[in-house]
Design a protein around this nucleic acid. Structure first.
Lengths: 148, 148
DNA sequence: CCAAAAACCTCTAGTTTGTAGAGATTTAGG
DNA sequence: CCTAAATCTCTACAAACTAGAGGTTTTTGG
């Protein structure tokens, strides 16, 4: 049995965020003490770790809800799990592809920009010059943040 | 002289977003027609491309503001821009590493899970297992967005 | 040349994913 | 038992847009 504060520290998720996750249904309502305070058990910590990792990876709350539904029904026909996994796999691959391009651009920026002045620095040129842009100029940041 | 609609299409940024950028000071106030409509010139398009590209790369609006101010004073030391890029690079690499692990798990599910049950899949373990987390458990996605 | 439609205007409100604070209550330590 | 820390609920705010209402301007085509 741990308090919300302890869960917060252990999982690396802020207290109000935990309550927020409960509010939107990502975290279940835990037991309460006589005095109405939340008390969590190990399963809560696991689930919260799951959520946090998935968020770090850029999954939207909705995507996480899907993933969690896999966990909730371990005997469900694999067909459903397969669909959910496949949907997310496409996202993951798209993310990786974009992040690799991003990595290349950032590497370029960092290596070219050693000790010079801003006028000589390639960051600005790289960012301003459309021709230097190696990405597809689709809707990269939308899918990165996955808020659409 | 182009309308906001034309600028929008050319730069790939939605019309309300352009107005929003003006409101928060990322884009300058353009000239207006007699009838109060915005009219943009080439420099606006360049700046908007800069902004969009930087957003695509995961720079926060604040970071972009910094970059734009560096652009305005090309004799300033360049290491600020470099630092911003380097900060993002670390995050991007961490994300790539973890996404690759997740990709492998999702691939496993999609290819192997047919006929099995969700409970046998490893996605959940992958996401929940602290040991697989290669980042410092700081605030990875925060620093990407650099909002804190 | 004038009507209709397309594009534009401002303003407000909603979205997602949280954060921060106020004021009241509960719990834990000494 | 008493006090300080932690918790509770509730509201409001953050970033970075997005959408719609209701009204004006510009363009287009007959």
């Amino acid at each position: 049995m741990m308090t919300i504060g302890r869960l917060s520290v252990t999982a690396g998720v802020k207290v109000p965020t935990i309550r927020y996750y409960e509010e939107i249904g990502l975290m279940p309502e835990p037991e309460r003490t006589e005095g109405n305070q939340r008390r969590y058990v190990g399963a809560h910590l696991e689930r919260l770790n799951f959520i946090r990792h998935a968020r770090d990876l850029g999954f939207s709350v909705e995507a996480i809800r899907d993933l969690l539904s896999l966990q909730a029904t371990p005997d469900a026909p694999c067909h459903d799990a397969d669909r959910i996994a496949a949907d997310n796999l496409a996202d993951v691959r798209a993310k990786i592809a974009r992040l690799k391009k991003l990595e290349a651009e950032l590497e370029h920026i960092v290596s070219e920009c050693a000790g010079g002045r801003a006028g000589e620095c390639n960051v600005l040129a790289t960012l301003a010059d459309h021709a230097l842009c190696t990405t597809d100029h689709g809707h990269v940041h939308n899918s990165l943040h996955e808020t659409t």
